[in-house]
Design a protein around this nucleic acid. Structure first.
Lengths: 139, 139
DNA sequence: CTATTGAATGATAACTTTTATCGTTTTGCG
DNA sequence: CGCAAAACGATAAAAGTTATCATTCAATAG
């Protein structure tokens, strides 16, 4: 089996990206991380292998990876704090194209389970569901 | 029935907040808004009624309202972009106390319905569920 | 009703996160 | 190899949020 270099080169080709050293190290470092790292956390790790890398490069490539579908962003929401004005029990429909957010009532969503305690002992207060998809306008 | 002033005075008293003019107008303006406004949007509206109000006051009071449970924040997530490293289908358990985020597998959550199209024509791509509650450590 | 005191406000500096700019370097391809 | 397009690094700038602090205001006691 060829080394990762070959695989990653192919991945880049598939997504129309140039294969650069920084990009490859970034990708490998990210693959080796767990949880939900921030760009700064990724930057810190990558810098150990490529000390001269710029934070801007990390940001730019994370964006490219996300746009290409190589990685996924954790939350689709706004970059600023938002306050919920709908006091009814409801969830959100987020359009993956225009990013619009529409409320959907608890009942209209039709999610059933509502367990009060989950497998590892987590005690449930409430569920917040984002339905990601295409709004009528963007379809 | 007494004007809103009285009601809001009572609300403040219940939460240990002083009743100020700015605070009252802010509250009323927010009550009249829909959707998921940002602090800047709230600020713009409030400024029409209290031109001298400071953006800092808006931020501080939105925080107080949220802490008091008068309003709710839309998303519980980080203030920075996070990338998802778990490529399995999963959701998140968010601790409302320590803010830690733990993954939970699609199956362990036990969500059933998975409709492909919702009431108003929204086309579903996927569901992203945040279970909000208390992690084992914080209980 | 007034005095007192702690809380709230406004102005603004500072901080954090992210994006834009731009000159230099590197990659892909002929 | 040589050229054009893309990517990089350094850094300035923008956006969003928080902190600081002098001044003003609200709650309470007298």
């Amino acid at each position: 089996m060829q080394p990762t270099s070959s695989t990653f080169r192919q991945l880049c080709a598939e997504h129309g990206l140039a294969m650069t050293h920084q990009r490859q190290v970034l990708y490998e470092v990210m693959q080796g991380m767990e949880g939900h790292p921030s760009p700064e956390e990724v930057y810190a790790k990558v810098k150990k292998k490529v000390p001269a890398i710029s934070l801007a490069t990390v940001y730019k490539n994370i964006h490219l990876f996300v746009e290409s579908g190589i990685f996924r962003k954790m939350s689709v929401h706004h970059g600023s704090v938002r306050v919920e004005m709908n006091s009814e029990e409801h969830h959100h429909m987020v359009c993956s194209k225009c990013k619009s957010i529409t409320d959907i009532g608890e009942k209209d969503l039709g999610l059933s389970p509502r367990r009060r305690r989950l497998a590892d002992g987590f005690l449930v207060e409430r569920y917040a569901v984002d339905v990601i998809g295409l709004c009528p306008k963007c379809q």
